Amino acid sequence: MAMEIETLPSTQSRIAQHTPDLINGEIERQIEANVNYFKGQDRETIQQRVIELEKEWDAQRILEVNLASIALTSSILGIISNKKWMYLSGAASLFMIQQAVQGWCPPLPLLRKMGARTGNEISLEKQALKNLLDETK
């Protein structure tokens, strides 16, 4: 008897899958508005925006750095101050595991609402701007 293994969503798609449609729609509209704005700009301005997009942190990276920072800080505080800080370190670690396995954790909706985009969303805008640059050659 073959055992079926449930496949997890890809890293690129799971954040968007776990974000409410309303927030995904807002992010998509913002990307469209950005591209439309740059349609009327000169090549240098568009190229500068592409450079900015290459430096933009995606939601996964922001989440990883924030949770790791919380875990590290609370661990240090637990060692030098009060052991109760270790609970915060444990919670942050659990959130990191949950994000890695399920593609969702409690801080994610807040990050998305604040406009943190996925790597795919950043790449979508970047590619649209590169297409504009190709059209203006």
Rank of each mutant, 00 (worst) to 15 (best):
2 A>M: 09
2 A>T: 02
2 A>F: 15
4 E>Y: 05
5 I>S: 00
5 I>V: 15
7 T>V: 12
8 L>H: 05
8 L>W: 13
10 S>E: 09
11 T>R: 09
11 T>E: 14
13 S>T: 15
14 R>Q: 12
15 I>V: 14
15 I>Q: 03
15 I>T: 10
15 I>G: 02
16 A>K: 07
16 A>S: 15
16 A>M: 08
16 A>R: 13
17 Q>F: 13
17 Q>G: 09
19 T>C: 11
20 P>N: 01
21 D>M: 15
22 L>E: 12
22 L>S: 02
23 I>Q: 00
23 I>R: 01
24 N>F: 15
24 N>E: 08
24 N>Y: 13
27 I>T: 09
27 I>L: 14
27 I>Q: 08
28 E>F: 08
29 R>K: 13
29 R>G: 00
30 Q>I: 08
33 A>C: 03
35 V>T: 11
35 V>L: 14
36 N>H: 06
37 Y>K: 05
39 K>W: 09
41 Q>G: 00
41 Q>Y: 04
42 D>E: 13
42 D>K: 10
42 D>H: 08
43 R>S: 08
43 R>E: 10
43 R>I: 12
44 E>Q: 12
44 E>S: 03
44 E>Y: 04
46 I>G: 01
46 I>C: 01
47 Q>R: 05
48 Q>N: 08
48 Q>M: 12
48 Q>S: 05
48 Q>Y: 06
49 R>S: 00
49 R>I: 01
49 R>N: 00
51 I>Y: 10
52 E>Q: 11
53 L>E: 06
56 E>N: 03
56 E>F: 11
57 W>A: 10
59 A>R: 02
60 Q>W: 12
60 Q>F: 11
61 R>K: 14
62 I>Q: 10
64 E>R: 07
65 V>A: 00
65 V>F: 14
66 N>K: 09
66 N>M: 12
66 N>F: 15
67 L>V: 11
67 L>Y: 05
68 A>D: 04
69 S>N: 14
69 S>V: 02
71 A>W: 14
74 S>Y: 14
75 S>I: 11
75 S>L: 15
76 I>H: 03
76 I>Q: 05
78 G>M: 10
79 I>Q: 09
81 S>Y: 09
85 W>T: 03
87 Y>A: 13
88 L>G: 02
89 S>E: 07
90 G>T: 11
90 G>Y: 13
92 A>I: 11
92 A>V: 14
93 S>A: 12
95 F>S: 02
96 M>E: 00
98 Q>H: 04
99 Q>H: 08
100 A>F: 12
100 A>C: 01
101 V>L: 11
101 V>W: 07
101 V>G: 00
101 V>M: 08
103 G>D: 00
103 G>V: 00
104 W>V: 11
105 C>W: 11
105 C>G: 04
106 P>S: 02
106 P>E: 03
107 P>V: 09
109 P>T: 12
109 P>A: 07
111 L>F: 15
111 L>R: 01
111 L>I: 05
113 K>N: 04
113 K>H: 07
113 K>Q: 06
114 M>Y: 10
115 G>H: 03
117 R>M: 15
117 R>G: 01
118 T>N: 01
119 G>L: 13
119 G>Q: 12
120 N>R: 07
120 N>T: 11
121 E>H: 04
122 I>S: 02
122 I>M: 07
123 S>A: 15
125 E>Y: 06
125 E>H: 03
127 Q>S: 14
132 L>E: 05
133 L>S: 05
134 D>M: 05
134 D>T: 10
135 E>A: 07
137 K>L: 13
